[in-house]
Design a protein around this nucleic acid. Structure first.
Lengths: 156, 156
DNA sequence: TTCTATGCAAACCATTTGCAGGTCG
DNA sequence: CGACCTGCAAATGGTTTGCATAGAA
């Protein structure tokens, strides 16, 4: 993980920014919670564990900086606050999400299924795609089971 | 267009709601601007032309009601305010968007290319998809031309 | 010193809510 | 009357900004 921090540090420097302790703490929280989709508030509370004096505004500023450098991706599931996903550099595009509308859990799909579609968009619309986002809404497996249980109970 | 209003009126009634003048005015604005992706504020200002006394809160409440009935779709492009798209009933799923990051224009794609993907998600993840959203970010044809012009000028 | 970054509090802005009146059946 | 609906104003909640200070080059 520290290699990743080093690497990002170099990215920051090459763009004229510094990896301050606050920025590093924020970054480490993101690295340690790569699977989750944290809100700014979540990140703030977690960073406070290792850096209690940090201000919420600084977390926002750090997250925005990391977004600019395409190190994290700011995503919006429509439920109030924005969330921040670490970007995986060996994946040129954002990963996709399965969002359960019942329990709110967000699962990730790592495959990138959309390249053929992007070529088609270029051909048919003359639109050069640089990025995309794809979210599916529905019911996750666990919730499907629970719903079946609930309806069975309702009948009996 | 009035047939559409009638139809939606019936949908409202069947769910126990009324098509009040305010709701109708809001709905008509959406029908008249089907191609645009209006924010709540946009809708508010347009409705005010035909119904000057309407309050912003009422517009929000009407839009929320229409969202619940799946007559309009609330979408969030990540630029501050939510936008509202009329849903096309012969399309079971949301249409897709091409969002130009240079001029901000939003184009629509009417095709639904994702059904095979949804079947695969069911098989591989046990996730029941009820809806999806797919947005592509990039440069539209017009902007691509302008950028080429700009770079040519820079060279000469 | 000079420029950047930080913490705090205040400001902002889209959206929601409380409430007192209004409408319709 | 009773249930729903509206307009207004106030509250809310996530995010941004102003500003004085602190730190690094």
């Amino acid at each position: 993980m520290t290699e990743q921090v080093d690497k990002i540090n170099r990215q920051l420097i090459s763009r004229g920014y510094k990896l301050t302790p606050q920025r590093e703490a924020t970054l480490r929280v993101l690295l340690e919670n790569e699977q989750d989709h944290l809100t700014a508030e979540d990140v703030y509370l977690l960073v406070k564990n290792t850096y209690p004096n940090i201000g919420l505004a600084t977390v926002y500023r750090s997250l925005e900086l990391l977004s600019e450098l395409h190190i994290v991706e700011k995503v919006n599931f429509g439920d109030g606050g924005a969330r921040f996903d670490l970007r995986n550099e060996d994946q040129p595009h954002m990963h996709h999400h399965l969002i359960c509308t019942r329990c709110g859990k967000v699962e990730e799909i790592k495959d990138d299924w959309l390249l053929p579609m992007e070529h088609r968009i270029m051909r048919e619309y003359g639109f050069t795609v640089t990025d995309h986002r794809l979210d599916f809404h529905g019911t996750c497996q666990a919730c499907a089971v629970e719903e079946k249980d609930a309806s069975r109970k309702a009948v009996s």
